[in-house]
Design a protein around this nucleic acid. Structure first.
Length: 556
RNA sequence: UGGGCCGUCGCCAAGCGGUAAGGCACCGGAUUUUGAUUCCGGCAUUCCCAGGUUCGAAUCCUGGCGGCCCAGCCA
């Protein structure tokens, strides 16, 4: 019995069968990850990346990184660079196999001429609106364009003049001649090329006609010798067109398309259109805002590549709805970080404690292990002084039932240090607790009192040596599980508490933390030194610790 | 109401005619100087429903029901 979910999936089973039947050689599987550089990669892309690169890795095959850059108006080289960085950061390597669909523009153009020559494509003069009308509806067949029966010679001439720039943008398109009555709308003479005078980030002004996705994608797969072209379910209806193209164009190889269901992460959105709005409308700071489900956002939040890979492994690959709870991602992050993150103490909502029986100038360095289970992570010196900060939530004047932290007259263990007793509570004029007077039991360093049980353990930071830090507490960006499915604008469901900023105090070692370094702040959660503001001491909460107490406390 | 696809625990998911894996979540309980981690135990007599085939059905057949996707010169 495995304790991990089975690593196979229906696509791997298809590949196994293809190898068994001899359709492909054992190490001959070739996949590709084909992003359009019109935005940043998100967690849904991570699923596809892990699938495609994972298959190539496990079968000794090859996975190409291919930018599907057929729409220059929406694309930007900034996104090309970000996508490459994100795929690498996730732990995958495309070797020499970095391609652009735009690398094939000349070859694709030749394929289009071949289709025209075979009488399988024609230049249509209809406007975009007219084409839509002629296409028919889901229940009614479409009608043939009046330009559908042009001669091969005329089509060739017109298409060449389209390329030469003789016509205005949108004046004509090249269409496949398939079947205007097809039940599958994708087969009702789909557009193959459009005229669009836009500077392309890779090809500059070399072209004024650009191929459509269906045309470019299928043929690019064939050019690259892709054996298994894996995409998401919404392209299932496009497969007959994919097959039609790959059949009617003279090609050296015959790729096949397979579809799996895309990931829907609850309490998040992953459509590029919506992510772009979040950025452009300033709802979040940028594509790498830690609340974004982008790879860059997850990275900045402190998530590890291993955690994302484990997540993608666990959600599986099927054709049924993949509506995954955020808790699964959180669990994967905690699992990785629990094993690898050094521990430290940070007080998020400081409350001063003055230890009456500790001398004013007393400084005692306590050697604390950086990890409870991994000695290799070493230890650090933590200064202990008369005045400390503890978290306000670790003290209660009127404790709820079951509270085992500090209370008036009660005792608690300071993590890694002494047991203290709260002797006095100092209030301000409004009755607010502003300070605690306490005393240590000097016999309890590294030892428990023999005559009584001290249940609670709280974390602390020396007031004299502690360092102020901004601590950003991130929560889910939306307050409904499926923002996309709600009525109205999805921005209405933004969680107003998705970011809470705390001005805390951290132990001295953290002042020297590298940017991007991850820690467990004991009893709080996992945090990462923010990489965007290296000049300041800012920590982002990656994920909180599992918290059984809040559940108990919440019940009463 | 055209076409395509999908329905196995709250979520994900194995299963591929021989009698329901696993993970997350949840609920106990043990250990613990993190209310963490770890550990141990519980958690689908039933697989959307109804018929049928079979010695035997989540798996095959038929008919329903429910959900998702498609009418860009986007990908």
């Amino acid at each position: 019995m495995s304790h991990e979910p089975s690593k196979t999936n229906f696509i791997r089973q298809i590949i196994d069968a293809d190898i068994a039947s001899g359709r492909i050689a054992a190490g001959g599987v070739r996949t590709r990850f084909p992003p359009e550089p019109n935005g940043y990669l998100h967690i849904g892309h991570a699923k596809s990346i892990c699938l495609n690169f994972g298959i190539a890795r496990d079968y000794g095959g090859q996975c190409n990184l291919r930018f599907d850059d057929t729409n220059p108006a929406k694309e930007d080289p900034e996104f090309v660079a970000a996508i490459e960085a994100d795929v690498r950061w996730l732990g995958f390597d495309w070797g020499d196999h970095l391609y652009f669909a735009s690398d094939y523009f000349e070859a694709l153009y030749a394929c289009a001429e071949e289709l025209i020559a075979k009488g399988l494509a024609y230049v249509d003069d209809l406007s975009a609106e007219a084409i839509r009308e002629y296409r028919g509806t889901l229940t009614e067949a479409g009608r043939a364009s009046p330009w559908r029966e042009r001669s091969v010679a005329e089509n060739l001439d017109l298409f060449r003049r389209m390329r030469a720039g003789e016509f205005d943008d949108g004046a004509r398109v090249l269409r496949a001649k398939i079947d205007m009555a097809a039940a599958n709308i994708n087969l009702r003479d789909p557009t193959l090329y459009r005229i669009r005078r836009a500077e392309h980030h890779q090809t500059g002004n070399a072209w004024c006609i650009y191929p459509m996705y269906d045309f470019a994608h299928a043929l690019s797969d064939a050019f690259e010798g892709i054996t298994h072209s894996i995409c998401t379910l919404e392209f299932e209806d496009h497969r007959p067109l994919y097959d039609w193209l790959v059949e009617h164009v003279t090609l050296a190889s015959r790729p096949r398309q397979y579809e799996f269901s895309r990931l829907t992460l609850q309490y998040a959105v992953t459509s590029k259109r919506r992510l772009t709005r979040l950025v452009n409308e300033g709802i979040v700071d940028a594509w790498d805002d830690p609340r974004m489900p982008t790879i860059a956002g997850l990275r900045r939040r402190g998530c590890t590549p291993a955690a994302i890979r484990a997540f993608c492994e666990r959600i599986g690959v099927t054709k049924s709805d993949n509506l995954v709870e955020m808790e699964l991602l959180d669990a994967c992050i905690r699992e990785d970080l629990d094993a690898t993150a050094p521990r430290a103490m940070a007080v998020l909502r400081p409350l001063k404690v003055v230890l009456g029986n500790v001398a004013e100038d007393h400084v005692e360095y306590l050697a604390l292990p950086n990890h409870p289970k991994d000695e290799a992570l070493g230890e650090r010196q933590v200064p202990f002084t008369r005045e400390l900060w503890i978290d306000r939530e670790d003290f209660a004047e009127h404790p709820p039932k079951g509270f085992k932290r500090l209370v008036p007259g009660g005792e608690v263990r300071l993590r890694g240090a002494y047991v203290i007793r709260c002797d006095e509570v100092v209030h301000d004029a409004d009755g607010e607790v502003i300070e605690l007077r306490a005393s240590i039991d000097a016999s309890t360093l590294g030892a428990n009192p023999s005559d009584r049980k001290v249940k609670g353990v709280i974390h602390w930071v020396s007031a004299r040596f502690g360092v102020p830090a901004e601590i950003r507490l991130y929560d889910r960006l939306f307050n409904v599980p499926f923002p996309d499915r709600e009525e109205g604008d999805f921005l209405a469901f933004i969680n107003p508490a998705s970011l809470a900023i705390a001005q805390g105090v951290v132990e001295p070692v953290l002042a020297a933390a590298d940017v991007g370094a991850r820690f467990q702040f004991e009893r709080e959660g996992y945090f990462c030194r923010d990489a965007r503001e290296p000049a300041r001491l800012v920590f982002n909460r990656t994920v909180g610790l599992r918290d059984a107490w809040s559940k108990v406390a919440g019940r009463t």
